[in-house]
């Protein structure tokens, strides 16, 4: 009897792990694509907030989550476009632009939410995405529930990761992206439009971040609260470094963090425990620092990362 309880408990944690990893997979894979092309998008936090707000608001008003998602993708594209305009075309410092984006994200989502919903902050709920059971696979013992009884966004995040792997490492487009992040001038001399590649990749990171944020408000929970993203945008930056700028590494990093979150929530809900819950709250942030420290060697990061490309006049 105790054995079964233990297994069910573990299964519960792993189910939560996958769910809590999903927003990080979305934002992380998007960021991998942008960073492979040489652009660090520090504005993820802000874009995730805008995504969370948009998805929830459109979903709430229209009653259609699909419509909400479409709006989220549009917001992601617009954010990516503006970020690229500043970092790629204007060639501004990517950190400064990112910081501005995060302020903008906090300010806009907060302002609009309060304007639209006034006092009912955090009380309004919508019908969030439900789990989809994949035939046969979902009946597998133990892992069926973990992997194959999740909602559509969870599956999409994995598809997003597979797509990124395919494009980056199995197509000519991937070669172009990696060359732009490594030696943009060489890419330029081979007739590759460095700006275009960077724009497209930053757009991908915008969409990834917006979807990741939206997952929090319309799939993981069904409410929007201010600052719902609570640092996941910044954590994504660490995960991508931890994952050595590769989709698979990033996926693993996201899953590890999902596990931290899941364990943290699980421990927090345990009764009669003497450790203050603040310790568990602090866990993901602490682990992020550790993840960064475990990262050694610059050799593997794209050489042109963070450097604006100055085309010849």
């Amino acid at each position: 009897m105790e054995d079964i309880q233990w297994i069910v408990g573990l299964q519960g944690i792993l189910v939560a792990t996958i769910r809590l990893a999903t927003p990080l997979i979305f934002s992380g894979i998007g960021l991998v694509i942008a960073e492979q092309a040489g652009v660090v998008n520090i504005g993820l936090e802000g874009i995730m907030l805008l995504g969370a707000f948009t998805g929830w608001t459109i979903g709430f008003y229209s009653g259609s989550l699909i419509l909400g998602l479409a709006a989220v993708i549009i917001v992601g594209l617009i954010s990516g476009l503006i970020f690229a305009l500043f970092t790629v075309t204007i060639r501004a410092n990517q950190i400064v632009v990112g910081v501005a984006f995060n302020m903008l994200g906090i300010g806009l989502s907060g302002f609009l939410y309060r304007t639209l919903f006034g006092r009912e902050i955090g009380l309004l709920k919508l019908e969030s995405f439900q789990s989809i059971e994949i035939p046969f696979l979902s009946n597998l013992p133990f892992i069926g529930k973990i992997l194959f009884q999740q909602n559509i966004l969870v599956y999409s995040s994995f598809v997003f990761c597979l797509l990124a792997i395919y494009v980056l490492y199995h197509t000519a487009a991937g070669l172009a992206i990696r060359s732009v992040g490594e030696h943009p001038r060489a890419a330029d001399t081979m007739g590759i439009n460095v700006f275009l590649v960077r724009y497209l990749c930053v757009l991908m990171s915008g969409v990834g971040a917006a979807l990741g944020g939206a997952f929090l408000s319309i799939a993981y929970t069904n409410i929007f609260v201010e600052n719902i993203v609570s640092g996941r945008g910044y954590i994504t930056l660490a995960i991508v470094a931890f994952g050595r700028w590769k989709p698979v590494g990033t996926l693993i990093g996201a899953l590890i963090f999902g596990l931290f979150y899941a364990i943290q929530l699980n421990l927090q809900s345990l009764r009669g425990i003497v450790i203050p819950y603040h310790v568990f709250q602090a866990l993901p942030y602490f682990m992020t620092i550790l993840a960064l420290l475990s990262m050694r060697g610059r050799a593997i990061r794209p050489k042109a990362l963070g450097k604006p490309y100055e085309p010849s006049a």
């Binding site: 400064v96 995060n102 302020m103 906090i106 300010g107 907060g110 302002f111 201010e226």
Partner: peptide, 20 residues
């Protein structure tokens, strides 16, 4: 009755305007 959190957005825009 205007949410003061707008302040944060305005700061973000200030930074972007300086850059632009």
């Amino acid at each position: 009755g205007i949410p003061s959190v707008l302040n944060s957005a305005i700061q973000g825009i200030v930074i972007l305007s300086v850059i632009a």
